[in-house]
């Protein structure tokens, strides 16, 4: 295992000391490894994004520890921290909000490559940017280099974010609702890119979503969160075949599915009314 959360909790307080406490995450355990697709599912407010932010060390954990290869992220040296920032990458939900509107695609991606010294000369940086864009299926890559975020569609922006993440050869990518806002066809395209990277570069994923069919399709291991707690976890197949926790069953039950409808009349209540 590479990235590990041990008994991490996060409490937010409103109005300073002694204010109302919200326990966003309660002693959660989670491990992510290379080549493994780990999913966190749950409704909004269940704490899944807070857990992701702690894994990325964007929020410090209130209790518990995050380890990268056994090293506590809180006590990392400068070099170790730089390595952590390279090894663990984030792809967040809103691609427009994660890209600087005034920077072109080549600037956005080139910047992180330069900062992490993944390449040094201008030519190398450009080459690496092109490779990353090709990896995520933006082809021909040179067409996209000088575009600004507003000139890209939602799916293309999301792929630029993934390209920026993979440009640094990360070992883990934490994707928070990375495909939730996309149309079915684009969603399938982005997921295929992610699965492809898993195969080719042995990237591991922590994939956060409320989209269960997608989880069923791509995940190896699933954590179900409810009210800040991981109420159930296990291999994807087991969770989907025999959910143990009541909430997991509700969640599975609520997903609209086409299979149940094929060739049948609409089943919504009251459909027969005049």
């Amino acid at each position: 295992m590479i990235l590990e959360a041990k008994n991490v909790s996060k409490t937010f307080r409103s109005g300073g000391r002694g204010g109302l406490a919200v326990h966003a995450v309660k002693s959660a355990n989670l491990t992510a490894a290379r080549g493994e697709f780990v999913a966190i599912v749950g409704e909004s407010g269940s704490g899944k994004s807070t857990l992701a932010r702690m894994l990325l060390d964007l929020h410090p954990a209130s209790e518990g520890t995050i380890f990268l290869r056994g090293v506590d992220v809180k006590s990392m040296s400068k070099n170790q921290r730089r390595d952590f920032r390279r090894t663990v990458q984030a792809v967040l939900q809103d691609p427009a909000g994660s890209l600087n509107p005034r920077k072109s695609v080549s600037q956005s991606i080139g910047e992180v490559i330069r900062l992490h010294k993944a390449a040094n000369t201008k030519r190398d940086i450009r080459q690496k940017t092109l490779t990353a864009l090709e990896l995520v299926g933006l082809d021909p890559a040179s067409h996209y280099l000088d575009r600004f975020p507003h000139e890209l569609s939602g799916g293309q922006r999301q792929r630029v974010l993934i390209a920026r993440a993979v440009a640094l050869n990360p070992q883990i990518i934490i994707a928070d609702e990375a495909v939730s806002a996309l149309d079915a066809s684009v969603k399938a395209g982005v997921l295929r890119v992610m699965a492809d990277l898993q195969e080719r570069l042995n990237v591991g994923y922590v994939f956060i979503t409320h989209d269960l069919p997608v989880v069923k399709k791509v995940a190896d291991y699933v954590h179900v969160m409810y009210r800040g707690e991981i109420v159930e976890h296990g291999p994807a197949q087991e969770i989907f075949q025999s959910p143990q926790h009541e909430y997991t069953a509700t969640l599975l039950d609520a997903t609209p599915s086409l299979d149940a409808l094929d060739g049948a009349a609409p089943t919504a209540p009251g459909a027969s009314a005049t």
Partner: peptide, 12 residues
């Protein structure tokens, strides 16, 4: 369908 059915390649 490719997003929900098992054993089908993702299709865009």
């Amino acid at each position: 369908r490719s997003l929900s059915e098992p054993d089908v390649d993702l299709y865009s």
